[in-house]
Amino acid sequence: MWKWLHSYADPERAYNLSGKLLPWFAMLATALVGIGSVWGLAFAPTDYQQGDSYRIIFIHVPAASMSMAAYMAMASSAFIGLVWQIKSADWAAAAIAPIGAVITFIALITGATWGKPMWGTWWVWDARLTSELVLLFLYLGVIALYASFEDKVLAARAAGILAIVGVINIPIIKYSVEWWSSLHQPSTIRITEKSTMSTDMLYPLLINIAGFGLMIGAITLIRFRSEILARNGMRPWVRELAIAEGVK
């Protein structure tokens, strides 16, 4: 098992494997997000309380749930890279960070556009929104730290430490923010409870959650591949590839 895994730590094999996986991820992701969004936008029944504005849920909830999952994925690969010195894991972490930031940004924006018609305001200092905002800052910190080192081996280690420190802090931040908002907001606003959702609404939502997950996987593979190429510029196989596909 370990031997098998280690063979994929070799950059060339990792590059080729991710190249083989990419079309499947991309196709499935496009299909699922397409089906889920069209179903959600056009075919799911109108909510009797929120009218059609609730249709934002089909992208908001997937983005919000994936934003945390992407951070966990980034931190675990950073951990693997730090502890077992597997460089591919470092590159994977570096590939996920910008994607996670974009997903978190989407979750915030869709939350705001949903909040405006429902709560009458673009932003409330609600626990979920606030911790999502903090999560965005954590992502941006990791990205900025990774970008500011010239030596990318060091950059990956530094950003990895920061990501892991962030993981330890996320539950504390979440808890403190929840506690804080319940204290400052006695008449709090509730997002519709998920359990009361009819299956006609639930299926497109689940499809979109799966689709967003696969899409993050697909974009991670794309970025992971270019990260491998950039970090292995001196290897013969990369040079051959560059000569074949590079400048005309």
């Binding site: 969004s37 936008l41 934002i56 992208i59 908001h60 983005a63 910008p98 994607i99 974009v102 940004f105 989407i106 924006i109 869709t110 556009t113 949903w114 899409m215 974009i219 794309i222 970025r223 591949r225 270019s226 190429l229 950039a230 510029g233 990369v238 040079r239 590839l241 560059a242 000569i243 596909e245 590079g246 400048v247």
Partner: peptide, 29 residues
């Protein structure tokens, strides 16, 4: 909401695809 989502995802995908091209070009140069 849908516009912002698909616009930012599209931008991310395109910039990620371009990144590979740029890396290969740099190495070739």
């Amino acid at each position: 909401a849908y516009g912002v989502t698909f616009f930012s995802l599209g931008t991310l995908v395109i910039s990620s695809l371009r990144q590979k091209r740029k890396v290969l070009n740099d190495i070739a140069k």
